[in-house]
Structure formats: C-alpha cells, structure tokens
Write a protein that binds this DNA or RNA. Structure first.
Length: 357
DNA sequence: TCTGGGGTCCTAGGACCC
DNA sequence: TCTGGGGTCCTAGGACCC
C-alpha cells in the first residue's frame, strides 16, 4: 500500500473568516490589513490584488474593495476548530501555519479522494470556511496539488500520474523555489521541472549550492519522500516594526527596541522559554538589510538584558543607519534553552549568575 | 505611500579545542 | 617548527514560506 498524504489549506484564511463573520462581505472583494494587504479574497484577487501590496494600490486596482482590520481572536478560534477536524482523520498532522497542514491518512482505510472530500465538507460545515485539499503520495506533490485545487477545490495526483503532473510545471511552481532560485535556473535555460530533472544532481548543486541543489533535484525527479511529522517546537521568538522614512532620533529607536524586547519576552515568558542569542535586524531606505547578533552567557526571558544587548548592537550599527537611513527594526531571540519538543513543557528559566555579569 | 510581520533553514568564514 | 583533520560555536547574510 502506498502512502496517502493530504495537504489541506484554508483559502484566503483571514479574508474568508471576515466573509464568514459578516454576510455583507460575501461575494465581494475583501482585503484584510491596515496599510498592507495581509490577505485578499478571491473576488479581490480577480482584480490583481495580492498579499504584501499596499492597500492604497489595491484600492486603485479595485474601487469596490472592502478593507477590514485583522481580527486575531477570530483567527485563533477558527484555526483551533479546523485543526480539531484534521485530528479526526489522522494522528499524524503536521501544521504548516494557522490554516494549513499535512495529514498522513495512509492507514485511514478509505481512498484519499473520499477522505479529502469529507474533510472539505466538515470544514465548510463546522468552521464555515473553504478548504482546498491536495492528495498525493508525497508531501511536496500534495502541497502543489492543493495549490492546483484552489479555490475551494480538490486535486488528486494519482501514483501513476506523478511525473505527468510534475514535469510540465514551471520551476517557480516548486515548493521551496523562490525568485532567486528560479532566476538561476532560468539563466541556465531551465524553465520546466522536467528540464531541471534532466540536468542531474551534480550540475544542480553546482548551480544552486549543496542543500538547494539536492532539494530541487530530489523533488524534480520525484524522490523527495520526507514523512509527515508532528510539529517540532519553535526555534525563535521575534518582533519587528516598520518605521517611517526619514531620520529617526536615537530616543525613538531606543523606545522601539524597549517595546520590541517587551513584546518578545512577554511571549517567551508565557511559553516558559528562554534564549541566549539576540539578533537585531535592520532594513534601510534602499531596502537592503543587515543583522547584528550577540550571544549572552546565559539564557533569559527577561526584557532588560535583551533590551540592553539590542541597544549595544544598535550602537555598533549606527554608522550604517546614519549612512543608509533606517526603515525597519526587528528583534529576534533564538538559541532557545532546553528541549523544544513541546511549547507546553515547563522549562527552567535560567538565571543570570554572578559570573555572567 | 511600492514593499508588513512572523517564522525556518542553509552557507561560509573565523575562533577555538582536541 | 610545521602540519593534519574533526568538531562545535558564533556571526552575518541570504533564500524561502505563510
């Protein structure tokens, strides 16, 4: 018996929640976000509206668009409902985000297509949301199948039809191939997955680097069979803030760092996690980026040492900031202490010792 | 009003240790 | 004095995903 893997993904999650909760929005172009589009309903996408686009531009492209503010409690609640439904179909559910997951339903005793159809029906009925599902033997194929299924559809890649599905696709449709990798492949004259597969692993790793080359070769030749795995614990906590263009006073930057450190550490404290490495992320007026990091001698979730470390990093980066102008400041704490198997697991928050000071 | 906010993983060089 | 591998940790940057 071959593996049966589902990739289930709620369509335009935030926008669909908004349309579910306000009947007046149904059938209309809706975007969620204040000044940047976080999600666009399919009605809005028909006008070329895309995620990441400034809302002002979305309004230009679609005069009737309705812009709604994000509503986090509704997303958390909806996500919980959807995942409870997923869990009924498999013990092996790997979340990809709030609104998508892989399910290994090999042992479910019914054809993948039937399970997927039932999953879609229940999510529509109990969560009131449109779910697209891809069914295949591997995660990568299931993921790309769900993309083909959208919106509100079901797409099955049969075992004997895998290469026929995969090889004609443009390389940029591969999961894990973004603009940079696609650009390198295009520069070599490779436009389809089949052409990339024909190149061979040695040439692909020479072109893309070891990991990326191996990965692209494995999926292009349909040899990527990583199992569905329950989620590992998180590896970092971060927060960031975009800043208006123009000079920023150091008091302003200081206040931003203090705020970011508090946001990050309060989440860490809630999850009972502590970290040792502080990363300051900067973005400049020309959209170049830089990061500065340092590692403390102890793991902490206390805002004060993290804010202090980030201020030192910022000071070290001042010449860069003065030269290029800063438009974003971010703070990430990583190198988390203890096991990361479960967020619920209570972990000791290591105290700063005399020797560390 | 071109470009938000939250993550993951990989690479490459240098320091340091055995 | 010169030389070797192998391993880990740290820093900075890049690519990608939702």
């Amino acid at each position: 018996m071959h593996p049966v893997i589902l990739h289930a993904d709620v369509d335009a999650f935030y926008a669909s929640v908004a349309q579910r909760d306000d009947a007046a929005l149904r059938g209309r172009p809706v975007i969620v976000g204040s000044w940047v589009v976080m999600a666009a309903s399919y009605e809005a996408r028909a006008y070329g509206v895309r995620g990441g686009m400034p809302t002002a531009r979305a309004r230009q492209q679609c005069r009737d668009v309705v812009v709604v503010d994000p509503c986090w409690p509704a997303y958390v609640e909806s996500s919980k409902t959807v995942f409870e439904i997923f869990e009924r179909f498999s013990d092996v559910v790997e979340p990809g985000s709030m609104e998508e997951a892989f399910l290994d339903v090999t042992d479910a005793g019914a054809p993948g297509r039937d399970i997927a159809a039932e999953l879609r029906r229940l999510v529509r009925q109990e969560a009131g949301l449109p779910l697209s599902v891809g069914v295949a033997r591997t995660k990568v194929l299931a993921k790309m199948a769900s993309r083909s299924a959208k919106p509100d559809g079901l797409y099955v890649v049969p075992p004997e039809g895998e290469i026929a599905f995969l090889h004609p696709l443009p390389v940029e449709r591969l999961w894990g191939v973004g603009p940079a990798t696609a650009g390198k492949l295009h520069a070599r004259g490779l436009r389809t997955v089949g052409q990339a597969a024909a190149l061979g692993e040695a040439d692909l790793t020479a072109l893309l680097g070891k990991a990326a080359g191996r990965y692209v070769h494995a999926i292009a030749t349909n040899r990527e069979h990583r199992p569905v795995q329950r989620r590992r614990g998180r590896r970092s906590f971060g927060a960031q803030r975009a800043l208006r263009r123009g000079p920023r006073s150091s008091a302003e930057l200081d206040a931003a760092l203090t705020d970011l450190a508090e946001r990050v550490t309060s989440r860490m404290q809630r999850k009972r996690r502590a970290g040792r490495t502080v990363i300051l992320r900067l973005r400049f007026s020309d959209y170049t980026r830089a990061s500065r990091s340092c590692t403390l001698g102890w793991a902490t979730s206390d805002a004060r040492p993290i804010a202090a470390a980030s201020r030192e990093l910022l000071n070290a980066a001042m010449p860069l900031i003065e030269q290029r102008g800063i438009t974003l400041v971010g703070l990430t704490v990583t190198n988390l202490a203890g096991s990361s198997d479960s967020e619920q697991l209570a972990l000791p928050v290591f105290e700063e010792t005399e020797a560390d000071r």
